[in-house]
Write a protein that binds this DNA or RNA. Structure first.
Length: 874
RNA sequence: GGGGGCUUAGCUCAGUUGGUUAGAGCACCUGCCUUACAAGCAGGGGGUCACAGGUUCGAGUCCUGUAGCCCCCACCA
């Protein structure tokens, strides 16, 4: 029945084998069983360009813990995996690859490019999935999805058409964020701002037909080429006479008006702003209010256009230099001052964004945001920790329309068609649209959609929506979403409004948010810093369980964590501890023992004690997992397994196990196996591999720990009297060890222990424990005189005497006892102070009052024992 | 400018609705190769819980303020 375990804990020798076993047995694939409650999670789909990093490792460890826990609790658990096509990132990667071959996108055309991209996906897209398996992720791989697969594409088209028909998707010329490197528009959420040192150039614009000048300041003199007005505040007395006048744009000679607009702040700078509607979001607004023309002065890659021959072909920064120089030479430059400002950069490539007026597709957000705010406010969706709902509300309440079109090829092509003949626009799912007006073949929009547009549909598109599939009916809405706080706006909020709009339901009820994994110095792990730690290397050195344990331990929701190999080492040591405890157990289990049952009547106090404590851990683990307190849950198991089971219980029962026979031996075997197996089950969601490997070796029922039942609190295993008895014994043993260590008595030197106690039954039966664990040569109960040359150890209401051969240093003894007395008196004082306080007794809960009463009783007894001892010493 | 977080042992961090003498890992000191484990065992030192007030019978935990560090959002040209 039982099997052997290897002498050494070597995770690499069994992790892959066990994963294959689970997979082959179909344990990852749930059935749509109407007698069970479903539990569904969708994976945050990693990019196909990605390699598994620590962020993935954390995210997926947390998800796997929940999935395995729920599965063992009897839920029909679906953890649905998949990958994201990651339009910008992937396209950039392929373009880069092509550049090395000397090929451009234009050379091979759209179809050729897409072919390459799909090849790339086939070749590398599955890489991260294999890496997730290494981690032990119990995803249902039979349901693996891809944001660009047929089903997801159908969902995307469906949504686009529906929103267009509802008027919530529109096409228009707006100012958007343009990345001159990626050559595409990006959404507001994709812009990252960073502080940059810059300058304020004070420039004067001549007033037409006058000697007067208007002075203004700008951080971007090169945009002067596109100025179509200058604005002042309507109530600014300094400039009243200029409103409506015409200025002559320096270097360009264009005549532009002075307009009045509230946007201009009188107190900032000179109170005059140049207006470049095509290159600044605020100026765009001003321009729209005053009907100013849009003049785009830059090409896609941020070089000055041919319209300005003096600067044509220069990039933004060269043009800036040249223009400043020309302004200076022309006498237009007044002064230059240093000025720090925030500059928007592309979150993918870091290039400075060029705001640009451009015709793009947008989602009108206002009406979609409303129900999304309500769902969180009313508790249909809960963020853990709660504080993140503030970020969410702030973002949702101030949301602007979402620019969804991208000038990329890798992605969902916008299902809009134009008729070149009559200019008709049709939005349809039909790929070969003909013009409803003139019957001509229509031309599809060249652009693709923002990657996040398809990710926003992930919780339902992956389950079959817009079709009412069996999976969709059974598994949707999902339950928990686990993700980092860095993508709440990108992804979580968009899933929420999307799902509410299209399915009418919240996509999930709980969002478990975790922080970032940082390096040992607290820095973000990044490629450029080269401080990233590769999870796969950690797995191959220490095992997946050690990595998972490290990520789960001491991690609280929403907080960042530091990662260091020292911590993984500690986790590996814990795994090793479990391994050895299991080896010890296996060595001492005999084939003639019945492990199917536990006969309470034959149990000894230490058995009941460990069962009682185990039972408590079971209860607490479930409670904490139900509250998503994963770090606390696993910490409790760690403490129990190491401190209680290994350090005490196994040591306590060694004499019975080594006796090899008898009822007491069988009871010890049964208890040990019961508690160890149960603890392994508790630990399985956190450390799936080692727990399975050991569980398979122990006597067990069933095929895999993975599909066994998660332990549940059992009232029959609650033994308070035995808990009390054993804690008294353990306290006394610790006190003896402590005294011996203080006196530097080596364990090899045994000493008899004389116990003076008002109640022998609190020690009787534990004599063997003192012999084995407190180096006692023997134990006897003191009736009369205390032994000569003995040191005394006070524990509770009892005194233990340890005769040592040397003369006892009475002075030192007295000093030590006096110190202990002081401590006891301090405790008594504090307990009395509380108990004599009528407010405390009447207002504090009974439980707390009783704790103080017990404390008073305990330390009063201790004090009496110490006083007696001091008296005896003379 | 708005919002949020952090500050607990030398280091990294837990501390779940306020309630026993504030914990862990690592590091450090002492003693142990005790036949599961030296990736270990036993023992030990080390904290006025950032600071100042307040609420409470009771505060690391709640409130207010201060300081330092960090993050997010907005972005006055």
């Amino acid at each position: 029945m039982k099997k052997e375990l290897a002498t050494k804990y070597d995770p690499s020798s069994f992790e892959d084998r066990l994963y294959a076993m689970w997979s082959e047995n179909g344990y990852f694939t749930p059935l749509r069983d109407d007698t069970k409650t479903p539990f569904t999670m969708v994976i945050p789909p990693p990019n196909i360009t990605g390699q598994l990093h620590m962020g993935h490792a954390l995210d997926n460890t947390l998800q796997d813990i929940l999935a395995r826990y729920k599965r063992m609790c009897g839920f029909s658990t679906l953890w649905l995996p998949g990958t994201d096509h990651a339009s910008i990132a992937t396209e950039a990667k392929i373009v880069e690859q092509m550049r090395k071959e000397g090929v451009t996108k234009e050379d091979i055309g759209r179809d050729g490019f897409l072919e390459r991209a799909w090849d790339w996906n086939t070749k590398y897209g599955g890489r991260i999935i294999e890496q997730l398996k290494k981690l032990g992720s119990s995803c249902d791989w039979t349901r693996t999805r891809f944001t660009l697969d047929e089903g997801c594409s159908e969902a995307v088209k469906e949504v686009f058409v529906r929103l267009y028909e509802k008027g919530l998707i529109y096409r228009g010329e707006r100012i958007i964020n343009w990345c001159p490197h990626c050559l595409t528009s990006i959404s507001d959420a994709e812009v990252e701002y960073e502080d940059q040192a810059g300058h304020f150039w004070h420039i004067r614009y001549p007033v037409k037909d006058s000697d007067e000048f208007v002075e203004l300041a700008t951080t971007r003199p090169e945009t002067l080429l596109g100025d179509t007005a200058v604005a002042v505040n309507p109530s600014d007395e300094r400039y009243q006479h200029l409103i409506g006048k015409t200025l002559v744009l320096p270097l360009v000679g264009r005549e532009i008006p002075v307009v009045a607009d509230d946007y201009v702040e009188k107190d900032f700078g000179t109170g005059v702003v140049k207006i470049t509607p095509a290159h600044d979001p605020n100026d765009f607004e001003v321009g729209a209010r005053h009907g100013l023309p849009l003049i785009n002065v830059m090409t896609d890659d941020a070089h000055i256009t041919e319209d300005y021959p003096a600067y044509a072909g220069m990039d933004r920064y060269e043009a800036r230099k040249a223009i400043v120089k020309d302004l200076e030479e022309g006498g237009f430059l007044v002064s230059v001052e240093d000025h720090a400002h925030n500059v928007g950069t592309c979150y993918r490539c870091g290039t400075t964004i060029e705001p640009r007026a451009s015709k793009q597709w947008f989602v009108a957000m206002k009406t979609l945001a409303e129900p999304a705010i309500k769902a969180v406010r009313e508790g249909d969706i809960r963020f853990i920790p709660e504080r993140f709902d503030k970020n969410y509300f702030h973002w949702m309440e101030n949301i602007r329309d979402w620019c969804i079109s991208r000038q990329l090829w890798w992605g969902h092509r916008i299902p809009a068609f134009y008729c070149d003949d009559c200019g008709e626009l049709v939005v349809t799912k039909d790929a070969t649209a003909t013009c409803p007006k003139c019957g001509k073949q229509m031309r599809q929009d060249e652009d693709t959609l923002d990657t996040w547009f398809s990710s926003a549909l992930w919780p339902f598109s992956t389950l079959g929506w817009p079709n009412e599939t069996e999976d969709y009916k059974y598994f949707f809405p999902t339950n928990t979403l686990v993700t980092g706080y860095d993508i709440i706006t990108f992804w979580v909020s968009r899933m929420i409004f999307s799902s509410l709009e299209y399915t009418g339901k919240a996509p999930f009820n709980t969002v478990l948010i975790h922080g970032l994994v940082r390096d040992a110095q607290g820095r973000k792990m990044s490629k450029s810093l080269g401080n990233g730690i590769d999870p796969l290397e950690i797995i191959s050195t220490y095992g997946a369980d050690a990595l998972r344990f490290t990520l789960a331990t001491g991690n609280s929701p929403g907080n960042d964590m530091r990662f260091s190999s020292e911590r993984v080492e500690a986790s590996r040591n814990f795994a090793n501890k479990i391994w050895n405890a299991a080896r010890f157990t296996l060595m001492n289990l005999t084939d003639d023992t019945d492990f199917a049952s536990l006969d309470v009547s034959s149990l000894r106090p230490e058995d009941k004690w460990v069962l009682s404590l185990y039972n408590k851990v079971v209860k607490e683990t479930r409670e904490n997992l139900d509250k998503f307190e994963i770090g606390i849950a696993v910490g409790g198991i760690y403490d129990f397994l190491w401190d209680i089971l290994c350090d005490w219980y196994i040591e306590l029962i060694k004499p019975r196990l080594f006796a090899k026979e008898g009822e007491s031996n069988k009871a010890a075997q049964q208890t040990l196996n019961y508690v160890l197996s149960g603890t392994l089950k508790l630990l399985h969601p956190f450390m799936p591999f080692i727990t399975e490997e050991i569980w398979q070796a122990l006597p067990h029922m069933g095929d895999s720990i993975m599909v066994s039942e998660y332990p549940a609190y059992d009232e029959a295993l609650n033994f308070p009297a035995d808990e009390k008895y054993m804690s008294g014994v353990i306290e006394a043993i610790k006190a003896v060890r402590n005294r011996r260590a203080e006196m530097n008595v080596p364990p090899s030197r045994k000493a008899h222990i004389f116990i003076k106690t008002p109640d022998r039954s609190s020690f009787e039966g534990s004599e063997i424990f003192f012999e084995k664990l407190a180096s006692a040569a023997g134990v006897s109960y003191l009736e009369g005189e205390e032994p000569e040359n003995a040191v005394s150890i006070v524990s509770g209401d009892s005194v233990l005497y340890l005769p040592v051969n040397e003369m006892v240093d009475t002075e030192a003894e007295r000093a030590r006892l006096t110190k202990e007395l002081e401590n006891a008196e301090k405790m008594i004082l504090s307990a009395n102070a509380k108990l004599n306080n009528a407010d405390f007794v009447s207002r504090a809960p009974e439980k707390v009052v009783n704790i103080e009463k017990d404390k008073l009783e305990k330390f009063t007894a201790l004090k009496a024992s110490i006083l007696t001892e001091l008296e005896r010493l003379g």
